[in-house]
Design a protein around this nucleic acid. Structure first.
Lengths: 203, 203
DNA sequence: GTCTATACGGCGATAGAC
DNA sequence: GTCTATCGCCGTATAGAC
């Protein structure tokens, strides 16, 4: 289906996603969204009842259907090294397509009692952590060092996601174009697993 | 000077800092700030002329006078290992005092043409990067591996800062109290330099 | 389903009394 | 310096014509 014969509802949701990701919930107005979707405010409320509900739909789709599936690679049934490379690669590709996603998700979680926290607790309750378990097993077999694997996982996530959160800062500091920034991120696909694996293997 | 006999101007700035850090510029209202400072909207505009100017003052103070000095530890004249430990330690202590700082700074930089970008370019122009230079020197001497030190610096910053940006997510995922979260961050003061240095030294 | 018109409240900012 | 009152604008949401 081409961009032009999208249904009005889809056009609105796409516009909302674009603007919410750019500016966050608080700084986004229904007027912005309506204009960006080439319609009017009335239709936004007709299809989604309120800005709040529209937001929740966008958030659920962005986080639950886009980000989480990639994060779950860490729970896959794969050898350690392959898993780390696959995770970094897939997450980087996801974030290159949607570089504003992590900032969006995390900034909407500011404040302990934000709109999205309930959604989060619901999600996290049904999640397991196969990755740390796998690291424990490898350590028991003597393949990698014994250490706090909780810290390792945090570091892994940090190294992959943070550069996209600080994208503008980085681009400014190093005078990068968007293209050059993405190239730098591509290079991290090798650099990150290398650092993690070197650390783990050097007992 | 005790909290109660602060000047009105100081009370307003403190209140503004608190609320801007919590909710960001877009979601903060002058009414919030006035109420939190135990005054009224008129006085906020009397002392700072506009919400915009008040924000800029808070931002400059938070970023320029708090965050930057610690970041500049990487430019200090110190041996590599000591420098990395000192940087991670000082930055972690700063972020434990002001855990919302990084989210605040980075979320206000969303969008290439945000309010704070000009401020940033002005700052970055007069910054040098002694850290990467130092890594090159150590590599030339054969003390550490040759690699892309730009990536190493990004990883270092990521590992220190990102956990605070995702604080709420982490606390939720691992069911941590604030106290336990800070303890986890304290443990990173050893874990992060250990990973970086192991990687650098394992040629 | 789509639009115009409008209600209603909250926003930032200021004028003017004290 | 401080307050009350108010202006004008923009936000979300809805009613009602087509």
């Amino acid at each position: 289906m081409s961009k032009t014969d999208q249904s009005t509802e889809e056009k609105i949701k796409d516009a909302a996603k674009k603007i919410f990701l750019e500016k966050g919930f608080g700084s986004t107005t229904t007027r912005d969204i309506a204009e960006c979707a080439d319609t009017n405010i009335a239709l936004v409320n007709y299809y989604f009842r309120s800005k709040e509900r529209l937001f929740q739909e966008v958030f659920k789709e962005s986080f639950g259907e886009t980000f989480l599936p990639v994060a779950r690679i860490l729970n896959d049934d794969l050898p350690l090294e392959a898993k780390i490379y696959k995770f970094v690669d897939h997450m980087t590709e996801l974030l290159k397509r949607d570089p504003l996603l992590p900032m969006f998700v995390l900034s909407e979680m500011r404040g302990e009692h934000s709109k999205v926290c309930d959604m989060m607790t619901a999600i996290h309750q049904q999640e397991v952590n196969r990755f740390q378990q796998q690291l424990e097993e490898e350590a028991a077999k003597g393949n990698i060092r014994k250490t706090d694997f909780s810290q390792v996982e945090i570091s892994l996530m940090s190294m992959v996601i943070f550069p996209f959160i600080s994208m503008n800062m980085l681009k400014m500091k190093k005078n990068l174009t968007t293209e050059e920034f993405y190239q730098l991120m591509d290079e991290r696909k090798k650099a990150i697993p290398e650092m993690i694996l070197t650390y783990l293997r050097h007992k």
